[in-house]
């Protein structure tokens, strides 16, 4: 038996979330006396994927070919199915992100295998198979039982962390029988900026709300983000009013993120906003209003004028980084 983890290929690179997923897969394998294997599609150096050996992956199944650099969900699912059947897989693991959301449900139907998304910890039991997932946008957790022999899970990013376990790894090439020819969908254009820190990947996120008092005041917030190597985000009213782009909106109906550190600047903390950031490891709130609900969910709070505090905070972090 084996556990298969789907390793998303980020333009020839791996990201921290791949290693977290590998760590999770290797723990699952350990608990079920099986082998942790990884599947990766498209163009990527072996040197890059070999890094997975630090996290308990013993075998990588590699499906090469430029056509796999664009995710066509229908085709990718069929490839994953082939590998699952060939490798005698009992558990398939995806990241709970756009890619996982696109592929895992399709695979669930193909394999008639129960799928639980947004898993936050290792299974509570394996027989029966019971696992905990996030529900009600972070306001609750659900214990779910999977009834089928094969299980599909997607792991909430940054919920498990990295667990090193160096092993020997081998790479195996897989020739798929699946073709793109009869799928009536094609990519016609691609606009990707490589250097911007994605909100989902960022370890640290600095986020601004109405308390910033206008788009012209964002410079000090961006300075802080630069010093921290952080991504920038904002609350809903800020994106609704066009102060910042919709891509930056985090919250229940925007992006749901779980960085290590979330710094909420001038954000009052409406329940819808908190739902989008409640899985952050550590939350710092800066606000002028001591009664702002954000202080109820924050780990650390600073009371005061955000425009005065931001530059001082940037200086403090600069000094720390300088040490």
């Amino acid at each position: 038996m084996s556990v298969l983890v789907y390793i998303e290929n980020f333009g020839g690179k791996l990201k921290k979330q791949n290693f977290e997923l590998a760590s999770f897969a290797s723990k699952l394998a350990e608990s079920t006396n099986s082998t942790a294997k990884a599947l990766v599609l498209g163009t990527i150096n072996n040197a890059e994927i070999e890094k997975l050996n630090q996290f308990g992956i013993e075998k990588i199944i590699k499906v090469e070919g430029e056509s796999f650099n664009i995710r066509i969900n229908k085709v990718f699912t069929q490839v994953i199915e082939e590998v699952v059947l060939k490798e005698n897989v009992s558990m398939v693991l995806f990241p709970d992100n756009n890619t996982g959301k696109a592929l895992a449900p399709r695979l669930s139907v193909r394999l008639r295998a129960g799928f639980v998304s947004g898993v936050v910890s290792l299974p509570e039991s394996y027989n029966p198979f019971i696992i905990i997932k996030r529900a009600f946008s972070g306001k609750a957790f659900a214990k779910v039982k999977i009834n089928t022999p094969t299980k599909i899970l997607s792991l909430a990013i940054n919920s498990f962390g990295l667990h090193e376990k160096p092993v020997t790894l081998k790479i195996e090439y897989f020739e798929t029988q699946v073709s793109f020819a009869d799928v009536p969908i094609k990519m016609v254009e691609r606009k990707v900026s490589e250097n911007k820190v994605s909100l989902f990947d960022a370890d640290i996120v600095v986020s601004g709300g109405r308390g910033m008092r206008g788009p012209e005041n964002w410079k000090p917030l961006e300075d802080l983000a630069t010093v921290l190597g952080a991504a920038t985000a904002c609350s809903r009213p800020v994106s609704d009013d066009g102060w910042r782009s919709h891509d930056e909106h985090v919250g229940q109906t925007g992006k749901i993120i779980a960085p290590n550190l979330y710094i909420a600047v001038g954000i009052s903390g409406a329940t819808q906003h908190v739902a989008g950031v409640s899985r952050s490891k550590c939350l710092v709130a800066i606000n002028t209003d001591s009664d702002a609900p954000i202080f109820e969910v924050a780990n650390y709070g600073i009371l005061g004028d955000v425009q005065k505090i931001l530059p001082k905070l940037t200086e403090a972090f600069k000094a720390f980084k300088g040490d």
Binding site: S108, R112, A113, G114, F115, V116, I130, I132, A135, G138, K139, A140, F141, A142, K143, V144, K145, I146, N147, T148, S278, A285, F295, E296, V297, A298, N299, Y300, G301, I302, L303
Partner: peptide, 18 residues
């Protein structure tokens, strides 16, 4: 394929440190 067994609320959070 799946069934929900139980729901739980998150642990209450520790008080903010100012």
């Amino acid at each position: 394929l799946t069934e929900i067994i139980e729901f739980n609320l998150p642990e209450p959070k520790a008080k903010v440190k100012m």
